[in-house]
Design a protein around this nucleic acid. Sequence first.
DNA 1: CCGATCCTTCGACCGGGATCGAAGCATTCA
DNA 2: TGAATGCTTCGATCCCGGTCGAAGGATCGG
Lengths: 225, 225
Amino acid sequence: MKEGPDIARIAALIGDPARANILGALMAGHALTATELAAEAGVTPQTASSHLAQLTQGALLSVLAQGRHRYFTLASPEVARAVEALMGLAAAAGQLRHRPGPKDTALRAARRCYHHLAGSAGVQVHDSLAQSGHLTHDASGLRLTDAGLAHLRAFGLILDSNESQCRTCLDWSERRPHLGGKAGRALLRQMQALGWLRPLEGSRALVFTARGQSAFATAFPVAKG
Amino acid sequence: MKEGPDIARIAALIGDPARANILGALMAGHALTATELAAEAGVTPQTASSHLAQLTQGALLSVLAQGRHRYFTLASPEVARAVEALMGLAAAAGQLRHRPGPKDTALRAARRCYHHLAGSAGVQVHDSLAQSGHLTHDASGLRLTDAGLAHLRAFGLILDSNESQCRTCLDWSERRPHLGGKAGRALLRQMQALGWLRPLEGSRALVFTARGQSAFATAFPVAKG
DNA sequence: CCGATCCTTCGACCGGGATCGAAGCATTCA
DNA sequence: TGAATGCTTCGATCCCGGTCGAAGGATCGG
């Protein structure tokens, strides 16, 4: 009964610990070089090279050669979403790699998912915009309303009118959608520019500054329901 | 940089061809016995037994022992969504197992995804309901409005008021969300009861009857945009 | 109780693939 | 040009895990 796409190939590609670490490192959205990824994955450069070739061949990564460096990124937001979906399953199965520590708490609060904001803060943004009518769910998926577009522009975001289309991304820690796509990306950039939050050293986690914390709460209020 | 859930374990679990076939067979939403799954996967019962034990252990499947039979199903809708996400990646990578044939076309038109309707017909249901205001996207995700609830009840669906909460499921062939959850499940059941469509032998594909085709188009119209 | 069916456990085999050392290109910089 | 750096290819090793035959429970029908 072989129907549909060959899922096993892709899953097997993600299923190796070294490759999974590579994908995890790239979930932050930054392009990383082969040697950096080798260190992240905990393998030698020649082993990493083999893995990177396979991931690229499998259309999970894309490469940008610059001088003697090769920068790798996730090939598409779809890849990031698939990885998050798998994280959700792994979390549900209780297969956390470490006992939850302070870093883990920080990750659940706010982190980079590909290029946008995830974690409870990310979900809060989504909910707040949805409640105030700045975000609608129509035929083509999630979309910013005109009011929402104006609202975010007032915030300092630079968004074309044809960039109202958004991506939702299932949050592995919250099990709820958060805001991805162009808008999500621009929003995170602006929040960092405003000094609301900064990346935690060597991690995808993001920590709010005291000032940013309260500003964020005011800007994206959410009613309990 | 080992952060978050252990994704490699889960992905490796899905990454074996035999296990992927098992998951694929269960995507139709029916409970299947160990021997049936062995046949689906193309391995002997003792091999399948080993795989099934691993999948159950990994919280991807759940088992119901009934007499000397053991019925397996996907452990949760999350599993089904993760599998669909992987199918999307595989399809994007152009790794279809077969050259697209008539069966493949049927699959893209309408199929079972877990217990609900997927494919272009599934997406059409979602879009139609969203356009007519029967479906909203709020803080807790996708939800049926009161009007939508009444609309579907008029259709013959039996739905509690507290079952307005819906699940969205990313469609691998359309790359767009379709309607899952309780409502999606009830809807598919009703459509089959009305004789609108019937399962294609030995496949997840669903084919519309002539009568069902036009009735469906009238019931779930969608404006082009 | 007996045979049939469903499923599992055990043991042995085998292959694919992950890994790293050594060597080879390519690029940059002095 | 020569040395250093980033990355890849090649080859050898090794181990994990998929596979099936044989045998052992478990459950049902009579």
